[in-house]
Structures are given as structure tokens and as C-alpha cells.
Design a protein around this nucleic acid. Structure first.
Lengths: 189, 189
DNA sequence: GATATTTATTGACCCATATCACACTTTATA
DNA sequence: TATAAAGTGTGATATGGGTCAATAAATATC
């Protein structure tokens, strides 16, 4: 779990030894093959994951088409947020785009730790804030930009997505068609 | 501050007497006239507000046009999230659509309370989660729906917006033109 | 390394929604 | 209560980006 510990320490310095012990105790390891689903639409997400190795993708189905909602890389937390928080069936699917190694914690256990430990609750708040900031930025993109601006924005903010992900997924992540993305790329390059 | 106290108690039961005392001590009252700005683009948001009375609107300017980002009603918290959290200049403006009465707390003070009190930190996390859920839902709307579906979604989820807000602001909140909204309304009614 | 499968590119065409223009209606203000 | 200002509705026209179709390129599989 040392990757996870180091990652959290970057956001919250001075982690206590007790926290570190909890971390090693409550997280467990999970592996996925390429193409395997971690979460399916309709299920209730009962687990929070952290990516040690690999790449994953969240998508939902609308009119028989896949719409990509998010990509996950090493050092990202993975979950279907509303499903986990509200314990309701989720609309999103999570699929491994490459072989993956994850750390996992049961949501119930996490909430128990948040209840008894101010330190855990603080850390949970910090990463909820991070999630909210990401959502806000993506929303800003959708509300204010046209196809080309969205692509430029992604290029500026998240070049690792452009470099590592097949363009059909990038297009659906940006809310544009594969063809339009291809034309934009032709125009820009 | 009893409105605020009651509101929080609906999310977090068993608030301590100490919390209630803090609440009365750290929040202060602020009034706004109709049309007055609470926050301007370019400023750093240093305050979190809670609406006791009135209606407000967050908007940003893109190509000389106002894009409405959010509406605030009684019992809503008001801020420009990224600006307050990161203490960076914000892109959004907040304007009073009616005369308003707000409760206010300095962000710095709130963070101090979060640091010393697990109870405050828990409450902060709960409302950060609420914010994130709202952003996620709005993002879902933008990514998956056409103009008419967005209007129906708003009608279902937030009828109070449709009933109380001039339609030009509703249109820009939905990311469609005034004319398109008008035609949708004609079609549906 | 050959062949099948998936993914990306390019052109032609189309449509949902924007824009423009103007009339009408409601709301503010002197 | 008159007059200005702001907001809404409706038709005509324009357009960004979608869809369809065929080809080319890349990747996987045997």
C-alpha cells in the first residue's frame, strides 16, 4: 500500500502512524484482466478503489451508444460516486482498459473510520473536494466550449489522456463524434 | 442563525451544543439589494454564504454573453467553489436576483474550525459531497441530453427553478438559446 | 508474417439548434 | 398611468457538428 500512502501524504502531510496502520489493515489488493468489468451499471458500488497499476474507463449507455464519463490512471481513486455515496444503483460501468492492480476498501469500513477518526474524515474530505473540483472543471468545459475548444482544453489539462487513449473514447469523453475529433486533429496538426 | 442550524441538523442529527455555539459566534449577517453583486469574476472568494432569504444567480461571461452556472434559493450555500477552495481568482459572478439576506462565514475561520473539530469537518464533508453530487448530476445532463430532455429533466428535478426564474436565465443554465427554450415550451404545453 | 478485426480518416449529406429580425407582452419607473 | 425597458414568442435562415458510407491504417490473432 505504500503507493497509496505516499499519494495521500502529498495532500495531507504529517499522517499519523495510526493512520498508516489502518491503511495497511483495511485496504486489500484486487487485480483485473484487460477488458474485465470492475463495476456494472445497475449495481450499487460498495467499494472504493485506488489504481496502483493500469488504466480504467467509466462509461454509460445512452441510445445503445457508449458515452465515456471518466478515465482512471495510476494514483487515481475509482468509484461511481453517486452510487457509492447514496448506496443506489449506478448508471456507470467501469472497465479495465489494461491489466490493472488496485487497492480496495469497503465503503462501509471507510465510513466507520471517518466516524471514529478525525484524520480519516479530513482525508476523505480532501479527496471529495478533489473530485468536486474535477467535476466542476468538466462541467465548465461542457457549458462553455465548442468541439475544438474542448479538444484544446483536454490537450492542455490532460495530455496523458490524449497520448494513451484510443481516439474513439476521447471523442465520447468530449461529447463529440469520432469523425469530428478526427477532423479537428487534421486541422490542428 | 436558527434556519442554518435547522438546515444542518437535517443532514447531521445530534449536533453538539458546542457546535451550535460556534455557529452563532462565527456566522454573521449580510444583506443585498436586488441586482447587487456578491462576488465578481476575478476576485478570490474568501467567504461562504448561506441563503436565509432571496434568490441569487452565478454566471460567467463567454464571448460577451452571460452563461448561468447556478441558482441559489433559501437554504442553499453560496460560493464560487474552486475560487474559495484553492484561493484563486474565480471565473464566476454572483448576483442577487431579489433582495437577499445571507449568513456568512470567512473561509479561513471555517477551515480553522474544521481543523480543531471533527464535528465541523464532518459537516463540511457532508456539504462538499452534496455539492459534488449536484455537479455530477448537471454534468450527466450536459453529456447525455438534448435540449428538450434537459428541459424535462429540470422540470422533474427542480420545478422551483422553472417557476421562479425568467426563462432567458433558464435557457442559459440549460446551455440552449432563449428561442429554443421558447419553442420547446410551446411544443410541450 | 498473413489474415481478420478494430480503429481512424475523409467526403457527402442532413438536422438540431443557433442566430437574426421583429412583433408582442410584461415589468419597472418617472 | 404613461413611457421606457426588459423579457418572450415566432418565422426565416444559417451552421456546427452529427450520421452514413466507403477506404485506409493500425492492431490483434492464429
Amino acid at each position: 500500500m505504500k503507493e497509496l500512502h505516499h499519494f495521500i501524504a502529498r495532500y495531507v502531510p504529517d499522517l499519523s502512524p495510526a493512520f498508516e496502520e489502518d491503511l495497511y489493515r483495511v485496504f486489500y489488493t484486487k487485480k483485473l484482466k484487460k477488458g474485465e468489468h470492475l463495476i456494472q451499471a445497475g449495481q450499487i458500488s460498495r467499494t472504493l478503489y485506488f489504481v496502483k497499476k493500469g488504466m480504467l474507463r467509466n462509461y454509460l449507455i445512452k441510445n445503445d451508444k457508449e458515452l465515456t464519463v471518466w478515465f482512471f490512471f495510476p494514483e487515481n481513486f475509482v468509484t461511481v460516486f453517486d452510487s457509492m455515496i447514496l448506496q443506489i444503483p449506478g448508471k456507470e460501468n467501469t472497465i479495465a482498459m489494461t491489466p490493472c492492480e488496485l487497492y480496495a476498501i469497503a465503503y462501509e469500513k471507510l465510513e466507520m473510520l471517518n466516524k471514529v477518526s478525525h484524520e480519516w474524515e479530513h482525508i476523505s474530505r480532501v479527496f471529495t473536494i478533489e473530485f468536486a473540483l474535477q467535476q466542476e472543471m468538466r462541467l465548465y468545459m461542457f457549458q462553455t466550449m465548442n468541439a475544438e475548444e474542448k479538444y484544446q482544453f483536454l490537450l492542455d489539462m490532460s495530455p496523458h489522456i490524449i497520448e494513451n487513449i484510443p481516439s474513439k473514447y476521447i471523442a465520447s469523453y468530449l461529447g463529440i463524434s469520432r469523425e469530428t475529433l478526427s477532423r479537428i486533429r487534421g486541422r490542428i496538426a
